[in-house]
Design a protein around this nucleic acid. Structure first.
Lengths: 134, 134
DNA sequence: GACGTTCTACTACAAGTGTAGTAGCGTCCC
DNA sequence: GGGACGCTACTACACTTGTAGTAGAACGTC
């Protein structure tokens, strides 16, 4: 697992662009970001370099330019970001987040449906290999 | 609603110290943070000032020193932080977060219990507002 | 009223972020 | 093989964050 340096706002956007299509050229990434951000080519390049330094993106020279590809998937990044929020704002306790969700946030019917599935799935998983992590 | 400038890691710790006890003197805040962080008095002062600038803390001179108190409660801060994470990492969609939780995170029995309560509560709430619970 | 003790205000400085410019190199085209 | 063009590498610069020091004001004490 690469050093879990957290992704900044702008970096998330770049990663999103990469997750949208496996190896992509710098040009492609810029193109994908154009509508969302309007960043200059060099801005995107800077961000890509920083991401490579951080180990979040792998680069490979390919003839003319380079091809970039994420070093981990979106779920992994999301898990890390969530953990980071948990530590920062919820005393690191998952339960606190759930409590907050239940008391403070408004849920739609679809959300509730999702939660029901979530419970069922969690139950299945935990009974399969009987463990309850913190 | 004060300008929702997001709280940084260190600022969260200071806010936590303030939420732990209504108006508190600078000295008190430092004291509460000592074990957790070991920060110098002036470090805490700097953070408090920044929080005042951001509108997250209100200050009031009181004889010798000042008394500080949070300008909003922890739930509000949590809601904002969550929103920010949502926008950054989950395409701004609450459902994406729930999906992530259901598929990616491991839940304990207590978590599941909490979720069940959450669903029930949401159902109650939404039926009160006259939406059919499917 | 001189002194020590506290606080506050201002300043500092390195790392990280957002955003981009410039120079130079490799490649493609005629 | 010389020019046009695209791409990478390096540099820039302001703002935020983490962490603190110093100088001076205010207050309590004898």
């Amino acid at each position: 697992m690469p050093p879990a340096t957290p992704l900044s706002e702008a970096e998330w956007k770049v990663m999103d662009a990469l997750w949208a299509g496996a190896p992509a050229s710098g040009r492609e990434v810029v193109e994908r970001l154009r509508t969302r951000t309007g960043w200059a080519y060099t801005t995107v390049q800077t961000l890509l370099s920083r991401l490579v330094e951080k180990g979040a993106v792998r680069v490979r020279r390919e003839g003319a330019g380079s091809l970039y590809e994420p070093a981990f998937d979106r779920s992994t990044a999301r898990r890390r970001a969530l953990r980071s929020l948990l530590d920062r704002a919820f005393d690191g306790a998952f339960g606190n987040l759930l409590h907050h969700l239940s008391v403070e946030e408004r849920l739609s019917e679809a959300d509730r449906e999702r939660l029901r599935a979530m419970i069922a799935q969690a139950r299945r998983r935990s009974s399969r290999h009987g463990r309850a992590p913190r």
